[in-house]
């Protein structure tokens, strides 16, 4: 049975520390936009922590919500791509094939979550940041779209390792960078097709909701609502 990768994010546990954002940048060779470009609305974070205020001061409460690609089963970004750069893998991931992308940006407009990013310029890493580039992840050139991959390089690495050792993948054996770096353990990653996995267990929670679930995109990221 193929894997079906999914994530559960417990909003009760998220402290909004943004360690996931930093880890993602480091793992996936995402350049920082810089002050100037950020002011023009061109920040590039494959995962971002959205911050909403509830109520009026002084009774205001803050709500954090990490948003990354929801890896939808019925992804609006996929059918609109004319070159199949945006497509669905057999393991349920929304993949982006950089070589095929011509940069129509249609997928980014079609995505209700705004989690697809465009390379407005060629990426630049100031010295010595160029030395920390991850060799497992390709660097994206100007004019193409990119997005969260659930750290597909780690998924494939673990699968190859398990196959070499002639064994099944173990739950929690590897994690995407954001999950790995989440100190309050608000994020859990795993295989939904494995009923014993932590992700499967948490997804059954009564607190489970989907972000913009009413749109029918069938996301694979599950949010556990706040109780407190």
């Amino acid at each position: 049975m193929p894997h079906k990768w999914a994530m559960v994010i417990d909003l009760d546990r998220c402290t909004g520390c943004e360690a996931c954002v930093v880890a993602c940048h480091a793992e996936n060779n995402i350049p920082t936009a810089g002050e100037d470009q950020a002011a023009r609305g061109r920040t590039k974070h494959w995962i971002r922590v959205e911050r909403y205020w509830e109520g009026e001061f002084p009774n205001a409460r803050i709500r954090f919500q990490p948003v990354l690609c929801q890896q939808c089963d019925a992804a609006p970004c996929e059918p609109v791509c004319p070159t199949y750069a945006s497509y669905h893998t057999s393991e349920g991931l929304n993949a982006q094939v950089y070589n095929r992308c011509v940069g129509t940006r249609f997928c980014a407009n079609a995505c209700p979550y705004n989690v697809r990013f465009f390379n407005f310029y060629n990426p630049v890493w100031e010295k010595p940041l160029n030395l920390q580039l991850n060799p497992d992840v390709s660097v994206r050139e100007v004019g193409i779209m990119e997005k969260c991959t659930f750290c597909v390089q780690r998924i494939h690495g673990a699968e190859i390792q398990a196959e070499a050792e002639k064994r099944e993948l173990k739950d929690g054996e590897f994690n995407p960078a954001c999950v790995q770096s989440c100190s309050p353990k608000a994020m859990v990653f795993g295989d939904l097709n494995d009923p014993a996995s932590e992700v499967s267990r948490l997804a059954k929670s009564g607190r489970n909701t989907k972000l913009l679930g009413e749109l029918g995109t069938l996301p694979n990221v599950n949010y556990l609502e706040r109780n407190s």
Binding site: D73, E78, P79, H88, T89, N94
Partner: peptide, 14 residues
């Protein structure tokens, strides 16, 4: 035959 994310491989409408 690419995985098409739930859409038919040969969609008559489009």
């Amino acid at each position: 035959p690419l995985p098409t994310g739930g859409m038919p491989l040969v969609p008559p409408w489009t």
